[in-house]
Design a protein around this nucleic acid. Structure first.
Lengths: 144, 144
DNA sequence: CTTCCTGCAAAGAGTTTGCATCAAA
DNA sequence: TTTGATGCAAACTCTTTGCAGGAAG
């Protein structure tokens, strides 16, 4: 139960605290925000400052181990790269629906035109109006 | 040259200023930020306050006419929905590469499990390390 | 008169950075 | 001694909201 060393695509071993941070992400049911992650770490053993959390998250992202997407609110959500989740988010109220499976499974980039870029992860997110907000909008502007 | 009325999916006509704002978005070469859009409007005829720009952008989003995605920096970028662009962004320096075509062309959501959601647009973005940042990283951690 | 739209300025949120400190090599 | 990691708090950015003025119906 103690994944003591995660091998990274670049081959170097992970510092202990980053390893721990990654574990918390893996144990989470869904993506979590930086703030949330910080709170969870604080609750457990490996408490660390908020700044450090973000610093590690960035490094994990650069190693391709952590994926990040941004809510319309500007909040960033993090998840392990290996987890391939996608969401449908309401552009009005922000309510989020997790999609049952990845619509684009083995998604590949063409290797040309990449200018030396090394792709690490992708985000695919859907946006729309939830049932509630559609109703609310219909009341204001009757002409559907 | 004067698209005087854009018909929306919901059937209602667009207020003049939103129409104009949408035009500026369409004329832009690529996605632009709220701030940038504000500046361009200010430079031309239809100058309006920053708050108003954001207010209109939100409404256009809710009508499915404008698409929005967030940079790692938290900045929001806007584009007309009909334009189907995707990018490869460096997680380190933020350098962005526009992909020559949409990797997932006619992307469709399963109509089940949507709980009344009405999808309006999607974002598909790739993240990785650009050539420069790979080089820089390699210098710090030699073991590739 | 009522309603909607607008601008300005202030507030708000999340994230990043500066700096002094502390541990490790 | 030198290097790298950390916490705290201040700073920063973009975005949203409150409120009063003004136009439209």
């Amino acid at each position: 139960m103690t994944p003591s060393s995660t091998s990274t695509p670049s081959g170097t071993a992970l510092p202990a605290r980053q390893e721990h941070l990654l574990d918390v992400l893996r144990q989470a049911d869904d993506e979590i925000s930086g703030q949330d992650l910080h709170a969870r770490l604080r609750a457990g053993e490996g408490a660390m400052g908020l700044a450090t959390v973000y610093r590690h998250l960035r490094q994990l992202q650069q190693r391709g181990l952590v994926r990040c997407r941004h809510l319309p609110s500007g909040e960033a959500l993090f998840a392990p790269t290996e987890r391939d989740e996608h969401h449908l988010t309401c552009v009005d109220c922000g309510h989020t629906l997790r999609l049952p499976h990845c619509p684009v499974h083995g998604l590949e980039l063409p290797t040309t035109h990449l200018e030396g870029f090394r792709p690490l992860f992708h985000t695919l997110e859907f946006f729309g109006l939830c049932a509630n907000c559609q109703r609310r909008q219909a009341q204001t502007a009757p002409r559907l």
